[in-house]
Simulated assay, not measured.
Amino acid sequence: MFFHEPELQYEVTVEEPDPHFAKLLQQAIGGQEGEMRVALQYMFQAWALPEEYEAYRKLLMETATEELGHIEMLATAVTKNLRGSPKQMREETEETAAAAAAMTGQNPRQFLSSGLSAMPVDSNGVPFDGAYVAASGNLAGDLYANVMAEATGRTLATRLWEYTDDPGMKDMLSYLIARDTMHQNQWLEALESLDDPVPVPASFPQEEENQDVNYAFISTRRDPQEDPGFPWTQGTAPDGNGEFSYLAEQPGDGDGVPPAPDPKTYSDPEPDGSDGD
């Protein structure tokens, strides 16, 4: 169940409307690093958790709902950058969306499809893709995915902050960057609170793994190389369950030739199934 208050989570002001910046802000809404991604990701992760993980479910849902508020903030920022642009630019936009794109660098669809407002698309106008959402049903794996999502989202927000000179936009982005800092840390802390969560899934019996390669760094160079002595080629692995090693060559065995396909698939290029001789 959701409730909505008719106010933004954080004030959004635009002093110098910029249709081109509105286009860039779309990436933070519907792009791969955007708020739609994390809002849906955290929701679907939460909905998969059983009762014993209720605390984590609440953590995920609280944060997912906050991310919905971020979408609202960014959508407001996009609209203010579009509709607050100078009158001459608006009149030019009304004449032809192509001229608007040429003049301002804005997405023509922000005029054609949404009437100068935000859309669930990225900065290139590509619709949001649910494939961006990582929700595996394994809490540890999902928390790692969340750290990555917040890291890429924070990187995007910092680049947008550097791009704009508008004080209001910098203030809004400063808030979003700060929240990304918190969210990265809360997911890392949640991971720390789990008992031995790695390797993911930790519930799979490790004795069923191939013990010759489960902690071995395998070189794929054609000529065998000596162990470079990196932290990931020697020493104790972070999960504490094994010791890193270095294999100078890939195991190599067998062949990759597949068996003949079923004739009913009609994969053979010749009528009698001959080999061309």
Score class of each variant (00 low, 15 high):
P120M: 00
N81W: 00
A99H: 13
T63S: 09
T76Y: 08
F111T: 04
L82Y: 09
L116H: 07
M89H: 15
E66R: 03
F111R: 07
T65M: 08
Y53D: 11
A99C: 02
P86L: 04
G115H: 06
E51G: 03
E72C: 01
M89K: 14
T104S: 12
L112P: 10
S114I: 05
K87F: 12
E72W: 02
V121S: 00
W47N: 13
T96H: 15
L74R: 01
Y56F: 09
Q106D: 10
L74D: 04
M61E: 11
E62D: 12
A99D: 07
N124F: 15
D122N: 13
T96Y: 12
R109N: 12
V78R: 08
E95V: 07
T63M: 09
Q110V: 03
A97P: 11
E66V: 09
L112R: 13
A55P: 05
G84M: 01
G69S: 05
M103S: 15
A97C: 12
Y53G: 04
M103V: 10
S117E: 10
K58R: 13
E72G: 11
P50S: 02
T76V: 01
E52A: 06
P50H: 12
T93R: 09
A101T: 12
R83C: 08
P86V: 07
E94P: 00
P50A: 04
A102N: 13
A102M: 14
E91N: 08
A64H: 01
Y53H: 02
N81V: 03
R57Y: 07
H70K: 00
E72F: 07
D122H: 03
A98M: 15
W47G: 12
A48C: 05
V121W: 01
E67M: 07
T65H: 05
N124L: 13
A75Y: 06
I71Y: 05
V78A: 11
P86W: 04
I71P: 06
E52W: 05
A77R: 07
T96S: 15
N107S: 14
K80Q: 14
E67V: 01
K58I: 04
T93P: 02
M61G: 06
E62Q: 12
T65W: 05
L59V: 04
A64K: 08
E52Y: 05
E91K: 10
D122Q: 06
A99W: 01
S114T: 13
M89W: 15
S85P: 06
I71C: 09
A118D: 08
T76W: 10
N124E: 14
F111K: 07
T65Y: 02
I71S: 06
A75L: 10
E54R: 10
